[in-house]
């Protein structure tokens, strides 16, 4: 793989994970919802979009919107019964929910509507890339990068606008004071939590869709709980409750994640060892961030109003 190709690939990954990171940052950084099942949204977006485009032969944009919609509904649905749970229970419930989603796609290998969707443990291949025929093999990644960047930018604008609005003030107060204070101010805390999960879900689903159509192949083992861990690392290292920080975190972690692949040129290690080394590297990065930069690279911005 040439250097340019590699850099474009890396940038695409940064963009997709940047969206995931922004989504988790809205949930955890701003609202204090410790979602340990972020990968569920990613997985749903990837599968639903794939099924829509591949099985039902619909255009990419329908896959994208459908993936977002299903992940949105999923966020909404898991939040309703759990919205009043304490943080630790919340973590367990979301972790379990994500595994259920993954195992569902692992075990369901039906053929829908006579189409070619054959999932299960074999995964699904041949996922079409949008407007692929208009580009050469060499230029297509640049086009895809443009799609990803547009999506990342849109996600940033939407989430950033929300977090700076009165809506953002309420979710921050939920993060800070638990339920009592916002409730005493007449805020329906549960409803805000559910909304945040639904919005977080939509963007998680968007990332999943972009991921599936870039790689052209998805399988359940790509959506292990480890993915959630990587996204958490991005939020913590980049700076929680700061949207630029969430994107920077995705950039840093992706660099780390992919840098280990060059290690094998210098140190004689096996691929399997390398894969676990990556996780060790990210783990160390989290620990270092927590010790020396508690608030991550970019701190939460203090909101200053002037008369």
């Amino acid at each position: 793989m040439g250097l340019i190709n590699f850099l474009v690939y890396l940038a695409i990954m940064m963009g997709i994970y940047g969206i995931l990171s922004l989504s988790l940052n809205l949930q955890y950084g701003f609202t204090g919802l410790a979602n340990f099942g972020q990968v569920a949204f990613f997985c749903l977006g990837a599968y639903v979009s794939t099924i829509i485009v591949l099985t039902f032969d619909m255009p990419f944009i329908f896959g994208l919107l459908g993936g977002m919609a299903v992940a949105c509904v999923f966020g909404y649905v898991i939040a309703i019964p759990t919205a009043n749970l304490k943080e630790d229970y919340w973590a367990i419930v979301t972790l379990a929910a994500a595994e259920i989603v993954r195992i569902f796609f692992l075990n369901e290998d039906w053929v829908v509507g006579g189409g070619p969707y054959v999932g299960g443990s074999f995964g699904v291949g041949g996922i079409p890339q949008p407007l692929r025929s208009l580009f050469s093999a060499h230029t297509y990644p640049f086009f895809y990068l443009a799609i990803v960047l547009v999506c990342l930018f849109a996600t940033y604008i939407i989430i950033n606008t929300l977090t700076q609005s009165p809506f953002g003030r309420v979710i921050k107060s939920i993060r800070e004071g638990g339920d009592n204070l916002p409730q005493a101010m007449g805020k329906n805390v549960k409803k805000f939590r559910v909304k945040v999960m639904a919005i977080g879900g939509s963007f998680g689903g968007l990332a999943g869709c972009l991921w599936a159509h870039f790689h052209g192949f998805i399988s359940p083992d790509q959506f292990m709980p480890l993915e959630t861990f990587i996204v958490w690392a991005m939020v913590i290292v980049g700076g929680k409750a700061n949207n630029k920080g969430a994107i920077l975190g995705a950039v840093i972690i992706m660099v780390f994640y992919n840098s280990t692949r060059f290690l094998k040129d210098y140190i004689p290690v096996e691929a399997v060892t390398l894969a676990s080394l990556r996780m060790v590297a990210i783990g160390i990065l989290i620990v270092v961030a927590m010790l020396f930069m508690k608030e991550g690279f970019i701190k939460e911005k203090r909101v200053v109003y002037s008369k």
Binding site: P166, R169, V170, K172, S173, R175, E176, G177, G178, N180, L181, P182, M185, A241, E300, R302, V303, V304, Y305
Partner: peptide, 16 residues
């Protein structure tokens, strides 16, 4: 007194 710690005094007031 519960006060959202990482919100400024003004933010606290505007929340209300």
């Amino acid at each position: 007194s519960e006060a959202p710690e990482k919100m400024t005094v003004l933010e606290n007031l505007l929340l209300a």
